[in-house]
Amino acid sequence: MRPHAATTTPNSGSAAKPYEQAAALAICRSCPVIGECRRFADEHNRINGYQLQGIWGGRRYGVK
């Protein structure tokens, strides 16, 4: 099973606007792999050399 973010648009995980962040968090709440996604984010603070950003496993990373 793949995280929902892996099957959506590239920007869905790095929502900048508050309503986009809220929508991403709502998707996370119903995701069956939220725990795996959160563990991945906690263990990999960088992807391809860039700081992890966006909504991962129901948490905000690098998002103000």
Rank of each mutant, 00 (worst) to 15 (best):
E43G: 11
C31H: 11
G35K: 00
Q21D: 00
I55H: 02
R38W: 12
I55V: 15
C28H: 07
S12K: 10
T9E: 14
I27A: 08
Y19T: 13
Q21W: 02
R38K: 11
R46Q: 13
T9M: 10
S12I: 10
G54L: 06
A26N: 01
R29C: 04
C37Y: 07
R29V: 07
Q21I: 15
I34Y: 02
A22M: 06
K17P: 10
A26E: 13
A26S: 08
N45I: 09
E43W: 01
F40Y: 15
E36I: 03
C31V: 11
E36D: 15
A15L: 07
T8I: 08
A22N: 06
P18H: 06
I34G: 02
G54I: 10
M1C: 04
C37G: 06
P18N: 00
E20A: 15
C37W: 07
G54E: 01
E20H: 14
P3G: 10
A5W: 07
A16I: 11
Q21R: 14
A15D: 06
P32Y: 04
N11D: 15
T9H: 12
I47N: 06
R39E: 12
N48R: 07
Y50N: 10
A23Q: 09
P18I: 01
S30R: 06
I34C: 08
T9S: 15
N48Q: 08
E20L: 13
H4Y: 12
P18A: 00
I47R: 09
A26M: 00
T8F: 14
G54Y: 02
C28D: 09
S30M: 06
I34S: 11
C37V: 05
R29F: 08
R2L: 04
A24S: 05
P10W: 03
E43L: 14
L25W: 05
R38A: 14
H44P: 09
E36L: 13
T9P: 03
E36K: 07
E36M: 13
S14Y: 04
I34T: 10
P10H: 03
E36R: 08
R38D: 12
A22K: 08
C37R: 05
L52I: 05
P10L: 01
A23G: 02
R39S: 15
S14Q: 04
A15Y: 09
N11I: 05
K17V: 12
D42N: 12
C37N: 08
